[in-house]
């Protein structure tokens, strides 16, 4: 294998680690908090159907 691949692979791993850390930072940015809180509750809008089967039939 050409020895150039060692530094290339190492550089790629570091770049990917930085991207991953970047995703954490992006997700925790305070400016997203309001939107994310609203999104976390979005499925609850469809609440009628979350009612359990109350009219039980034999």
């Amino acid at each position: 294998m050409n020895p150039i691949w060692g530094p290339v692979a190492g550089g790629f791993i570091i770049a990917m680690m930085l991207v991953f850390i970047g995703i954490w930072v992006w997700a925790w940015l305070p400016r997203h908090q309001r939107a994310f809180n609203a999104l976390a509750s979005l499925p609850m809008e469809d609440d009628d159907a979350a009612a359990i089967a109350l009219d039980d039939k034999p």
Partner: peptide, 23 residues
Amino acid sequence: YFVPRQAQQPLWSYRFSIVNFWA
């Protein structure tokens, strides 16, 4: 989608779900 809806609770951590997705 269906777990928060059936639990009638907001998703525990929306931010964590994004990190988990990419990972």
